[in-house]
């Protein structure tokens, strides 16, 4: 359910633009925030507020990988798979996460704590490979960093020591690139239960 209060905030956003449809993206973020993911209800609300047709909003939602179409776990780990991160070994990183969490990309762990997703460019190519946890960036991620990250999250700690900043994990070394690239050798073995 999108409450009237959320809709009022959406209208406020749309009022900032000459054409209300320009508010489609921020409104969708609001809808996702309100319900945890973008539901058909959320799409209908955005369609109503922006004066666009439902199918057009649907098209936008599918285009951007930041919008979730299904409930996510407590922590949504979004690993960038676009070109810079790919060259810096995101495949190995992703496989490491899959093994470590015992799930495939796109899935959520049975206890509901982690969702693992591959997403399009997160606009941090200079610090590739990068990932986001519930919207917070983690950069230059090595497989060791990944393990440390999961441990932190399992303990209920923040993503990084300084939340909200560009999160550079303490274990950063110059060798990290080789380390992550080396991790990409174990293709298709991530089915560990």
């Amino acid at each position: 359910m999108i409450t009237e209060e959320v809709k009022a905030r959406m209208r406020e956003i749309c009022a900032r633009y000459p054409d209300p449809r320009s508010g489609t993206l921020p409104c969708l973020h609001l809808a996702q925030e309100a319900e945890g993911y973008v539901t058909p209800d959320g799409i209908a609300a955005v369609s109503e507020v922006t004066g666009t047709k439902i199918d057009e909003v649907e098209s936008v939602v599918t285009f951007y990988s930041m919008y979730d179409r299904a409930p996510t776990g407590k922590y949504a780990i979004k690993v960038c798979t676009s070109i810079s991160c790919y060259l810096r070994g995101c495949d190995g990183l992703m496989e490491h996460f899959e093994q470590r969490l015992g799930i495939q990309r796109g899935q959520t762990t049975a206890d509901g704590s982690f969702t693992l997703q591959g997403v399009e460019c997160l606009a941090a190519c200079g610090m590739a490979p990068v990932l986001q946890v519930n919207g917070e960036f983690v950069e230059n991620v090595t497989t060791a960093d990944a393990d440390a990250l999961i441990e932190r999250l399992k303990r209920g700690e923040a993503v990084a020591a300084q939340p909200g900043a560009w999160n550079v994990l303490p274990s950063k070394t110059g060798a990290s690139a080789q380390q992550t690239a080396a991790g990409s050798g174990s293709a298709q073995t991530g089915k560990a239960k």
Binding site: P40, I43, I54, E58, S59, F63
Partner: peptide, 20 residues
């Protein structure tokens, strides 16, 4: 109401929204 493009990049495909 009718056809829309869904997804993007190599995943792009034509689709319909069941609600429309």
């Amino acid at each position: 109401n009718g056809l829309v493009m869904e997804q993007r990049g190599f995943r792009i495909e034509v689709g319909v929204d069941p609600a429309a």
